[in-house]
Design a protein around this nucleic acid. Structure first.
Length: 281
DNA sequence: AAGTAGTCCTGAGTGC
DNA sequence: TGCACTCAGGACTACT
């Protein structure tokens, strides 16, 4: 569900509630999400101060005063809901618990952060902060698309000789980390490249051109507070609005904004791709 | 080794 | 109103 811009938006929403704040109470309502939760998770969170709230790819990382880091992944349907802040209290206190509230953190301030995830593709784990990069879920991730390690030479090299469609290559978190189905579709439209083109068949110029486009699309989406389709919301409950600027995603049959040709949907490795058969070759 | 299905899970939407 | 079916923003595992 949430891709990098949505996760970054959630992180920013959580910052004022969590960073520098103490977790007074941790309620863990089930033993597992996608994976088993770490042993004694509630006890290991209780009393800890969140010293920093970071993001790596689609993961949120909370560094705790204990020397451990809490890893949070939202999967497809995960949400972090904030309640009980000063502003929210003016209207209402905490909402009634909902069906898929799996982890509830109550901060010293009285604010509450609830992890709700119907499909349970999300994950949480604890690891030593000193070795966070070695965590199984993080160790093989490619560079941050908005960071310095992601550049034209790098991407051209990673796409070289690859016999997989460019769509699949950009979804591969080992190549670049943080893109998902929406933003890959949008990037490829802006690049004028069909999702079915083999990665290795791109010219070096085409591969290089993808880098600034990826940066632009992700930055614009963060600026817009992410994209709200079905269940994604920002942590404060606000909707993102980048979905209003989609050029191809979820627009099957609608006119291409560039040339008015109807957008086509096709399935690649089980995921929907949307593209303009005229603009994208 | 690299590339591609199948898989986990719940809920919303659609068509009969 | 109900039922069957498809689809969903992710990504791991197990095949070929």
């Amino acid at each position: 569900m949430p891709e990098l811009p949505e996760v970054e938006t959630v992180r920013r929403g959580l910052l004022p509630v969590m960073e520098g704040q103490r977790i007074d109470q941790a309620q863990v309502n089930r033993p597992d999400l996608r994976f088993a939760l770490p042993p004694n998770m509630a006890a290991r969170l209780t009393g800890q101060v969140v010293q920093a709230l970071r993001r790596r790819s689609k993961y949120i990382l909370a560094d705790l005063s204990s020397g451990e880091t809490l890893l949070i992944h939202l999967g497809m349907s995960g949400r972090m809901l904030i309640s009980g802040t000063q502003l929210a209290q003016f209207h209402h206190a905490h909402p009634a618990p909902e069906k898929h509230d799996h982890v509830v953190l109550t901060m010293q301030s009285g604010a509450r952060v609830t992890f709700n995830d119907p499909r349970r593709f999300g994950a949480m784990d604890l690891m030593p902060t000193a070795n966070w990069q070695a965590h199984k879920l993080l160790a093989d991730l490619g560079p941050e698309p908005l960071g310095n390690g992601f550049n034209e030479a790098y991407l051209a090299h990673r796409l070289e000789n690859r016999a997989t469609p460019i769509k699949s290559a950009l979804l591969d978190q080992k190549v670049v980390s943080g893109l998902g189905n929406i933003y890959v579709c949008e990037v490829l439209h802006r690049a004028g490249i069909a999702p079915t083109r083999l990665a290795g068949d791109l010219t070096a110029q085409q591969a290089a051109a993808l880098v600034p486009l990826i940066r632009t699309v992700l930055s614009e989406a963060i600026e817009a507070g992410g994209s709200s389709l079905r269940d994604y919301r920002q942590a404060d409950g606000e909707l993102g609005y980048f979905q209003h600027t989609f050029r191809v995603y979820d627009r099957e049959g609608q006119p291409c904004p560039a040339c008015a040709t109807p957008i086509v949907r096709l399935v690649q490795s089980g995921r929907s791709s949307f593209y303009c058969p005229s603009c994208q070759r």
